[in-house]
Design a binder for these strands. Structure first.
Length: 272
DNA sequence: GTAAACCTGGCA
DNA sequence: TGCCAGGTTTAC
């Protein structure tokens, strides 16, 4: 489900509601997430105050008053939903972790596929975060950086952009959208891109992610932010999951191919 | 590099 | 019934 814009949307929705609140209780109903939840997880979170909430790549980071960090990744199907009154929350199937806060509210981690993960760690030394590349909306991601990678890999441009070590937070939806906007086909080898195309890819990455955040992410099947609102970016998709539908620029039917084991969509006329 | 693995749910 | 899904890691 969640790529950078969706995680950013959740963080923004939760930030004003949970900052300054203390963790009163932690109920782990299922430890069997992508990485098993250790026995110390609840204890290291309970009693801590949440100082701030931020995002890094597709991770949500709840900074705690002891300097550590509650790190949450939603995987494919995860949600982190705030309920106003935890006492009246009816537990649903796939509610795996329930965190009670000092104002009576709660944060419910719900994840049918259990590809998500969470941990309490020192963010600066966490192995979850240590190998992640630059933020695409930050200064570390620029055309020279991308063009400099060209001679170091034989991978496709799509594979490279999906690699979290190269750039943080892009997933299958937004890579397809970025490559459409950059007018580059997903199967192109990165090494075959011109310097001009690298400029376009970086510029398109910024544009698409900014636009998606403004529209509070994509609710293609079920994404909800931290307070249960749907996003609106799905209505603006140019190519993702639009196989056979007309290109918004030239009306040519959108094509679907598999690149790096993932469905990819492009306009055969607009993208080269 | 590529494939398979982890899981459940939804849809044709 | 089989295939697909917004992610990541692991193993050939």
């Amino acid at each position: 489900m969640p790529e950078l814009p969706e995680v950013e949307t959740i963080v923004r929705s939760l930030l004003p509601l949970v900052t300054g609140k203390a963790v009163r209780s932690v109920h782990v109903l299922c430890t069997d997430l992508r990485r098993a939840l250790g026995p110390c997880f609840g204890a290291s979170l309970t009693g801590r105050r949440i100082v701030s909430v931020r995002r890094r790549a597709k991770y949500m980071l709840f900074d705690l008053d002891d300097g550590r960090c509650w790190i949450v990744h939603l995987g494919m199907s995860g949600r982190l939903l705030r309920v106003k009154q935890l006492a009246s929350h009816e537990r649903r199937k796939h509610d795996h972790v329930i965190v009670g806060l000092s104002d009576g509210a709660g944060l419910v981690f719900h994840d049918p596929r259990r590809f998500g993960l969470m941990a309490v760690e020192d963010a600066a030394s966490s192995t979850l975060l240590s190998a992640i590349g630059p933020e695409p909306l930050g200064r570390g991601f620029h055309a020279e950086y991308l063009s400099g990678l060209r001679r170091r890999t034989r991978r496709t441009v799509k594979d490279v952009l999906m690699d979290q070590r190269v750039v943080a937070g892009l997933g299958n939806i937004y890579v397809n959208e970025v490559l459409f906007t950059a007018r580059v086909r997903p199967r192109r080898k990165l090494a075959s891109l011109t310097a001009e195309e690298c400029v376009r890819v970086v510029r398109a990455t910024r544009e698409i992610l900014t636009e998606a955040i403004e529209h509070r992410g994509s609710s293609i099947s079920d994404f909800l932010d931290g307070i249960g609102r749907r996003g609106a970016y799905q209505w603006r998709r140019r190519v993702y999951d639009r196989k056979g539908e007309p290109c918004r620029e030239c009306a040519t039917p959108i094509k679907a191919v598999v690149v790096g084991q993932r469905s990819s969509f492009y306009c055969p006329r607009c993208q080269r």
